[in-house]
Design a protein around this nucleic acid. Structure first.
Lengths: 332, 332
DNA sequence: CTGAAAGCGCTTACAG
DNA sequence: CTGAAAGCGCTTACAG
């Protein structure tokens, strides 16, 4: 059996209340008592049982992080930012995989509630997820990251998807390019929608005509990046400037280029969300939109901690962090 | 205030004991009572408070997973395997980042113990970590993954690092190659040690001479992959067959090749731990040692669950999963 | 088949 | 500055 506060109390010759006070750094304990207790704690190797503590205090100092998958550098860098910030305040994090499934997401949310987490951070699987708002209404603070959900009335930390894509595309228009293609994601993911909107806005302003066959939507994964790049390159008059919705599309498109050098225009240029040096290595110049990924996680944790610590009064807020443009392999 | 078992009991007109039994699917409850209670549960939206349950039952149905970093595809695919297997049994997972720091690792372990986790899975930061054995001795089941720790007398799920590297290297010797370089990791990581040993064994058997300057040790990260590749290529007589200790070294080495095409031998060939299509895209043929990553995680979870469920008697075991060799860009 | 009651290991308002 | 006691929300041995 494990050593409890009772054992410590006995050994130190005080009440359990006193032990609790020492352990919790209550200041009105005499130095002598404190030392007696601390000695007993050391002697017995006592560690507080946070389960018992939580039952009494109604706080578990743990939160849930729900992500659509783990083998995804973007999500896990967000997770790293979250964990980092939480650790500073002594909070722990349950990590749950929703596997891009609404059903699992909802189920997992229920389990987290049963675990009595103090709050939940979600990278939502889809923008249709009313149960998230229900959880929030139920009194558990919720912060969304990266993607938004319809009819959610809580905090969210996102990036400036539309503006960033608009600006990057516009930059290429200004440098004289006018033959565009686009590889995006599904409309149930808000990042996909926003990035597409930014692209469309820039192109419409430019007056350049885009062949509808050059605008393709996939799953933001490597496979569809490859397939859609292939589809675009196999059209009669393939564009030489491809705007890519995320890192994995970019990888897939690069794989296509790497294995079909002759099938792509010599003047090929990529614009891509997320940062990778690979484009430059493979020899395709690019503009990349770097997201402040750790910051995204840290801010989400920060916001959640604020809510947990009673600041439920201040208005809910959708915060958009600024991305940063980097260039690879551009002469000059 | 949240709805508790008491509220349900009142509404259903039964005792809290009965509610508990219904919730826990105790079979000796009459159908009529069960239905009354289930109705009350639905009406009130009752969910069990697992904190209270755990205090009584001494089981939290949660475990801790300690990883050296998150932004690492290998570790997170292990984590995915773990979570997957755990979810099948209704267990949850605290994910903690040890940041490749012994100090943080030890500290985090303490916090997990306070959280009363039922068990812990660790990808250790270093092979010098006596406190891990101490935790295990303290009665919390511990399973190591990927890396081993000295003087640890518990379960571990690893891969056949030495054999795999030996076999892959040998294969190249047999195909006529005899000019080798090696990019490995630090000796406090057992995977680095084992892979190096496999390489050395194959080379020694081959009779090929390896210039000590062609054997380099870094941090298993992209940066050192690049730097060490550069160092090797800048020697008087650079080898054309490079054995790489892991995925990130491989990436870094590829970046060097991509940006220094003229500085590398035409016959350059890579042997690498971990799987990536990039080598082929960049045009360097390679043999790659694919690890059964999810399986690694799943097996670790499986083993831990066995231990948690009372099977602490059967002997501790270091299990080595088999890797699989894949080839890229090899004519023929 | 069901209930009364004890108890898991803490914290804290109250009293002194 | 310290202790006795109640109580957090469950589970379960015991009794009927």
């Amino acid at each position: 059996m494990n050593v409890t506060i009772k054992h410590v109390a006995e050994r130190a010759g005080v009440s359990t209340a006193t032990v609790s006070r020492v352990v919790n750094k209550d200041t009105r304990i005499s130095a002598a008592t404190r030392e007696k207790v601390e000695q007993a704690v050391r002697d017995l190797g006592y560690r507080v049982n946070t389960v018992a503590r939580s039952l009494k205090s109604k706080r578990t100092r743990s939160i849930g992080l729900l992500a659509p998958e783990f083998a995804n550098d973007f999500f896990m860098r967000v997770a790293e930012g979250v964990e980092d910030r939480l650790a500073e305040d002594g909070y722990s994090m349950f990590l749950v995989n929703s596997r891009e499934s609404l059903e699992r997401e909802q189920l997992s949310l229920g389990l987290l509630i049963e675990k009595q987490v103090d709050g939940i951070i979600i990278i939502p699987t889809s923008n249709e997820a009313e149960y998230i708002e229900a959880i929030r209404r139920g009194g558990t603070p919720v912060v969304l990251v990266d993607r938004l959900v319809s009819n959610f009335h809580g905090d969210a930390i996102l990036v400036d998807n539309e503006d960033a894509t608009y600006n990057a595309t516009r930059r290429l228009v200004e440098s004289g390019r006018c033959s565009f293609g686009f590889i995006g994601g599904r409309p149930h993911v808000t990042t996909a929608v926003e990035r597409h909107a930014g692209f469309v806005r820039a192109v419409e302003e430019s007056g350049c005509r885009v062949d509808p066959n050059h605008i393709q939507f996939g799953d933001f994964d490597e496979e569809s990046g490859y397939t859609l790049m292939e589809a675009i390159m196999n059209t009669a008059n393939p564009p030489d400037t491809i705007v890519l919705g995320n890192y994995f599309s970019h990888l897939g498109a690069l794989r296509y280029v790497g294995t079909h050098r002759d099938a792509v225009p010599k003047s090929l240029f990529f614009v891509s969300f997320d940062d990778t040096v690979l484009s430059g290595i493979i020899g395709i110049p690019s503009i990349q939109i770097a997201q402040p990924v750790d910051e995204l996680g840290r801010r989400a944790a920060e916001r959640l901690l604020l809510r947990i610590n009673g600041n439920s009064s201040f208005p809910y807020q959708v915060e958009r962090l600024r991305t940063r443009i980097t260039e690879y392999g551009i002469a000059g």
